[in-house]
């Protein structure tokens, strides 16, 4: 067990190095000149050269890459060209905001998916099962950037029940989920984000609970005439490691893929930051955001794997 965990942890080092190479290569392939976005249209070529020198963009590419990786390893991702703020701090504070939405969405999806998936698994082949399967496929087919717009029109503009955008008057620094005045800002984005994981988790709950129900030990309990809820408890216990793994992965996907939902709701998370960095050609910010997001994803996957291997030693991925 410990050996597996250590092996699994060591393995992320080459992956992370590969990730840095991809991030860097992307920026290198990107057209355009990073200094240009900073200068007024009539600045002289000398000014552009001065800025390129200042940020080290005039160095050979491998020198730039080496420096960047070494600094990144110590948590220094440079300074945003536009805002002049340290990229690491920017990304980390945005990551917290994105985590709020992603965790909320996964939890909401889990609660609903768990109920629906278990009911479906217990009544496999029935109308309820068919309906819940259809619902889960619908969930993974809805473009969430469209759903978000529809929700804003209905609940924010027409009904006026919930705010349309942003994080509320207190902002992210003192954002508190226990305060309704602030929590209400997170509701629409969380619902929007939860639809995709809802479909996926529901499918996986249904499959794993159905599998557990089919196991001999549970068949035996059934034959003994145990009440349905007791049987379900057993089945769910058996299916849990698998469901946990799916949830963890969904959380990772939401954190990394929040750009569309955050754009619609003006939510100041990593997706919003990414969009801004693309728009303004802010190379250090773009590189840093992509790097932090993909490394978070790797770490989330690692945690999921380790947890799953603890709960269920049969599953060990390499």
């Amino acid at each position: 067990m410990i050996g597996y965990i250590i092996k699994r942890m060591l393995y992320i080092i080459p992956v992370c190095l590969g990730v840095t190479a991809v991030c860097f290569a992307l920026m290198y392939l990107a057209p355009g000149d990073p200094a240009q976005a900073l200068l007024p249209p009539d600045a002289t070529p000398e000014d552009a050269a001065y800025l390129l020198r200042l940020y080290g963009f005039d160095q050979p590419v491998w020198v730039q890459y080496g420096r960047w990786v070494l600094r990144a390893a110590s948590g220094d991702l440079g300074v945003s060209l536009q805002s002049q703020r340290p990229v690491f701090r920017e990304v980390m504070s945005a990551l917290g905001n994105t985590a709020v939405l992603s965790a909320g969405a996964v939890l909401l999806a889990f609660v609903l998916a768990f109920i629906l998936g278990t009911v479906a698994a217990y009544n496999i082949g029935s109308r309820i099962d068919q309906a819940s399967t259809t619902l889960s496929i619908t969930g993974v087919s809805v473009p969430n950037y469209w759903l978000g717009i529809v929700l804003v029109i209905v609940f924010a503009v027409e009904l006026g029940w919930l705010p349309a955008a942003g994080m509320g008057s207190a902002g992210s620094d003192s954002f508190s989920l226990t305060d309704w005045a602030q929590l209400r800002y997170a509701i629409l984005p969380i619902i929007t984000m939860s639809v995709l994981p809802l479909g996926i988790i529901m499918r996986s709950v249904r499959a794993s609970v159905a599998e557990a129900l089919g196991q001999e030990s549970i068949q035996l309990l059934r034959a003994k005439g145990l009440p349905p809820y007791a049987i379900l408890t057993h089945a769910v216990k058996n299916a849990f490691p698998q469901i946990l793994a799916v949830m963890g992965l969904q959380f990772g996907f939401l954190v990394g893929g929040s750009i569309l939902v955050e754009t619609i709701f003006n939510w100041p998370g990593t997706g919003f930051l990414l969009g801004k960095a693309i728009l303004t050609r802010d190379v250090p910010l773009l590189q840093g955001t992509i790097l932090v997001l993909s490394i978070s994803f790797v770490i989330i996957n690692l945690v999921v794997d380790v947890l799953q291997s603890i709960f269920d030693p049969r599953v060990r991925r390499t």
Binding site: V100, L177, T178, W180
Partner: peptide, 29 residues
């Protein structure tokens, strides 16, 4: 620093759970 940020992120997620339970409608000051 990184560790702090991560624990902070985790705290966020945990407080979200709490929020689900404490959905008290507190009036806007």
């Amino acid at each position: 620093m990184k560790n702090n940020e991560i624990t902070w992120g985790l705290k966020r997620s945990a407080s979200l759970l709490a929020a689900g339970l404490l959905l008290a409608l507190s009036a806007n000051a």
